Computed example of a mutant assay.
Amino acid sequence: MTLLFSPRTWFQATLLSGVLGAVLPVLATELVGLAFPMSDVQVSASVAGLVQRISVRPGQMVKPGELLLELDNASQHVELRRRAVLLDDDSELQTARVRLAALTELLQMTELVASKSQSVSKEELVKARLEKAAAEGRLLQLVAQKARERVEHEQAQLELQQRTVRAPLAGVVVDVPMDVGEWAKPGDVVVRLADISQVDLRLNLSQTAAASFRVGARVAARFEAGAAQVQAMGQVNFVSPMADSASGLVDVRIRFANPNGRIRPGAKAVIRIPGASS
């Protein structure tokens, strides 16, 4: 048999391959995704109205519940004051209570006299009882009316509140597409808010590559930031249990803290997965 390598040549080749295997890194796959804000909300008005005041501007940070925009509310203020006056006026109710108390006492006295003598006719006794019953009925009517007035006052307050648009979450104002004097309809976007305190890096990966990710795993990424780059460490918070029926790709999301806003939503980011294949 003829040897292609002498024993010495074979030993050198084996040694060299072992050294190269120890020195050269395992090939890594670079995966590219896009950064998205944790929340991106298009805030709309719940009622129609004329834009009266805009309290925010693009780039401004807002807190939950902070006033964003106000619709014309003059008529709602007037209606609320009218309802408040009606609700506060309980003079008729107090009069009805006093009347009932007096008729109740009068009936008791009439019944007492009727039980001890014949000076009170049966007709007078029946009349006293009917007057007391009517007074009780009137008092119940007024109590129910006052309850309705309370509900109507609350409704007027709600209608006034609906003329204001407030921030549903903390974030930065991205856009204010409305101007003062424009007519806003229910469903029209009046302010766009984004919470960029955290960002989600979204990747659409093959099932093979997606198998490299587990929820809770820490992953490093390199984000575009103009001429520079931002290095950040995030955590896998979602690996879709389903693959897209059209492309066969799996949605994977990695969340990164972004307290200083250094990561701009919409920027591309690269992560390296050792030994993975795309």
Rank of each mutant, 00 (worst) to 15 (best):
A35G: 13
Q94L: 11
Q161T: 10
A35L: 14
T164Q: 14
G181I: 08
G187I: 07
V41P: 01
A194T: 04
M242A: 14
L140E: 10
A22I: 06
S17R: 07
I54R: 13
P265K: 08
S91Q: 14
E224K: 15
S44T: 14
R53S: 12
S247D: 11
N73F: 01
V190A: 02
V56L: 00
S206T: 15
A144N: 11
R166I: 10
S240I: 00
N204I: 02
P168E: 10
V230Y: 04
A184D: 00
V56E: 02
S6D: 06
A48S: 14
D175S: 15
F223S: 09
V230C: 03
A134W: 03
V252F: 02
R253S: 07
L125W: 01
G248T: 03
E131A: 14
A257D: 14
G248N: 08
V174M: 15
K127Y: 05
M242W: 07
P37V: 09
Q141A: 08
L125H: 05
D251W: 11
G234L: 01
S278A: 13
S6F: 07
G266M: 09
T110R: 13
K127S: 12
L103V: 08
E79R: 11
Q108V: 04
S206M: 11
E105A: 13
D90R: 15
M38N: 11
Q52A: 12
V250T: 13
Q42L: 04
A228T: 06
V78C: 07
P25E: 03
V62I: 14
V43M: 01
D89G: 05
I196V: 14
A170C: 08
L20E: 07
V47F: 00
K116D: 07
V43G: 01
L139F: 11
L100C: 04
G234M: 00
V51H: 01
R83S: 12
